[in-house]
Amino acid sequence: MVPKTARPTAGANPSGQLVSPGTVHEAERGTTGRADSGKFRQYRRLTSGAFLSPALVIIGIFTVIPIIMTFIISLHRWSMFTPITRMTYVGFANYARVLSDPNRLNAGANTLVYVGLSLLITLPLAVAIAMLLYFPQLRGKSLIRTLLFATYVIPTIAIVITFGNIYAPKYGPLSTIITGLGLPSPGFLSDPRQALVSLVIFNVWQMLGYYVILLVAGLTQIPSDLFEAASLDGAGPLRRTIHIVLPLLRRPLAFVALMTVINSIQVFDPIYLMTMGGPAGSTVTLSYEIQRQAFQYGLAGDASALAVLMLGLVVFIGGLLAIFMRRRAS
């Protein structure tokens, strides 16, 4: 590491004074690589600590400590209606019980289906829309990008109320359109086979704009001569999409996939507000189960064991996506 010499920019340093090379003595450097005197170094260190502490204290107390506590509580039996000092150590009993309880396994299965369907619908749709909003020269593209994103800023509960009405059998517009086409009226949220899919569509609707923006941003990073070269080679649009656009979109796509997983694995609001896990337990998810176990039955141990399992799932899928990105990049 060679310390750069101080280069005063015009006007920035009216005195024109240069730091003498004699003070450059060790690795502790300022931003431009110029060495600091001890006093400044100490001052800079002090401010480093002072500036970091508000964020570190908040994140430490309200994120890091709760993560550790989740692990600890998951190894104990503790009713949330009693003080935390009353919890008793039970080892992995909570995990054993949770993993052998068909209701909890059902919640896990529903969550996986929900996450899988979200990915399956979100990724192709977001890529198609992002390409439509990027490649052709059309007026009004940025307006539509903004409109798409607007759904993201509306409170979920307001969307729940709106979609509850749109999904309403007979009264709702969707049901009217579908029966108008001569098809049987779907039950949507009241049909155990359709409820989870209806919730996925709801979630995709809310999040789509965010993913489209990320992918459009990814497309702007691709050098355009790659498309031109492919065009001259005579590659058709479908082949260009599969062989050029998708591989080059790998990073943003993996990021979008990760965000979709994290977002959909914790789905709570629409289930709490719309279906209460029903009909017939078809929409009970892990988040809903965690909240219900803890806040309705006080079973903090079970809830925490489920929470740890969910975290494990996030880490596992995140790891897979990271490996996928690495491997394809090399």
Binding site: A300, S304, M310, L311, V314
Partner: peptide, 17 residues
Amino acid sequence: LTMFLPPIVTLVPLFTL
């Protein structure tokens, strides 16, 4: 890394704290 943590995971201890 904490950015990728679903808030529901820490809900119980956070509430307790």
